[in-house]
């Protein structure tokens, strides 16, 4: 399958191109001010407003420092978790490379762990640059009630 790869912390993740609608540079957004820690706020994509979610907080537990290479991956969720956003969200990732052709169903792949709260983590394979794990982005915010009910943990300077 064709995937885009991104690096969160020191781990590499892959996003299925089929799930991606569009890639945007980091644009100005209106902060949410409330809600889970991964919810950054709302962005305006050609007139349509949609929530901006920080992937680093979900995957790594730390927020992304915005830079020139930061990208917003626009994708459609299966269910409309956020009323009025037509099922679309923007996922803030530190950077994007690809698309590349990767086969996550190959013989050497690890199928992934099935703990509660990890349904978005797919199988892991090793390619020329090290190990890369497939992210099931559509499940990032669905099917896992615990994820949505994460407490608000905003990092505040001491």
């Amino acid at each position: 399958m064709q995937v885009l790869t991104t690096i969160v912390g020191d781990r590499r993740f892959a996003i299925d191109c089929a799930e991606v609608l569009e890639i945007l540079p980091l644009v100005a957004y209106r902060t949410a001010g409330t809600g889970p820690s991964w919810l950054m706020g709302l962005i305006n994509v050609r007139g349509q407003l949609m929530p901006l979610v920080d992937l680093s907080v979900i995957v790594d537990g730390t927020s992304t420092a915005p830079r020139l290479a930061s990208r917003i991956v626009v994708m459609a969720l299966e269910a409309d978790l956020f009323e009025g956003s037509a099922g679309r969200i923007g996922l803030l990732v530190p950077e994007v490379a690809g698309p590349f052709e990767r086969d996550f169903a190959s013989g050497g792949a690890h199928p992934g762990f099935t703990f509660a709260g990890a349904s978005h983590l797919g199988p892991t394979i090793a390619d020329g640059q090290g190990m890369v794990q497939l992210l099931r982005c559509r499940r990032l915010l669905e099917g896992d009630a615990a994820l949505r009910e994460l407490p608000i943990e905003r990092w505040a300077p001491p």
């Binding site: 064709q2 191109c17 569009e22 890639i23 698309p99």
Partner: peptide, 21 residues
């Protein structure tokens, strides 16, 4: 130039995604 290159890169990624679809 750097900004233009970044934009071009973004454009190419989106184009690739569209081509894939």
């Amino acid at each position: 130039i750097s900004k233009v290159a970044d934009q071009t890169n973004l454009l190419s990624v989106n184009a690739a995604i569209e081509a894939e679809k």
